[in-house]
Simulated assay, not measured.
Amino acid sequence: MNILIADSGATKCEWCLLHEGKRKKVDTQGISPYFLDAAGIAKVIETELKPFLAKWPVDVVYYYGTGCKDPKNQKVVQKALRQVFPGVAAHVTHDLMGAALSLCGDTKGIACILGTGSNSCYFDGRKISKNSPGLGFVLGDEGSGAYLGKKVLQYYLYNTFDEELRYKFDAKYVTDVKEILESVYKRPLPNRYLASFSLFLAENRGHYMIENIIEDGLNDFFFQHLCKYRESWKLPIHFVGGVAYGFRDVVKELCGTYEFELGRILQKPMDGLIKYHSES
Rank of each mutant, 00 (worst) to 15 (best):
K50C: 11
F161E: 11
G40R: 02
D37P: 11
F52L: 09
E20N: 15
Y155P: 11
D216L: 10
P236S: 08
V77S: 00
R187M: 11
Y155E: 12
N159R: 15
K268V: 04
N131G: 04
K168M: 13
V60G: 07
K79D: 14
S118V: 10
M97T: 10
G140W: 01
E163I: 11
V240I: 12
L226A: 02
G263Y: 08
H94L: 04
H94P: 05
G145T: 01
L18E: 13
D27M: 09
K151L: 10
V174W: 06
L81W: 00
A39F: 05
A6I: 11
L139S: 08
H207R: 10
V152D: 08
I113Y: 09
I3G: 05
A146C: 12
L262Q: 12
G143H: 06
G256V: 09
D7A: 05
S32E: 06
F222N: 04
L148F: 03
L266Y: 13
D124T: 08
G217F: 01
D176A: 10
E14S: 13
L49I: 04
Y156S: 08
D170N: 07
E164P: 08
G145K: 00
G87S: 09
Y122L: 10
V138A: 12
Y147F: 15
G30C: 05
G98P: 10
E279V: 15
Y229P: 10
C68W: 01
T93F: 00
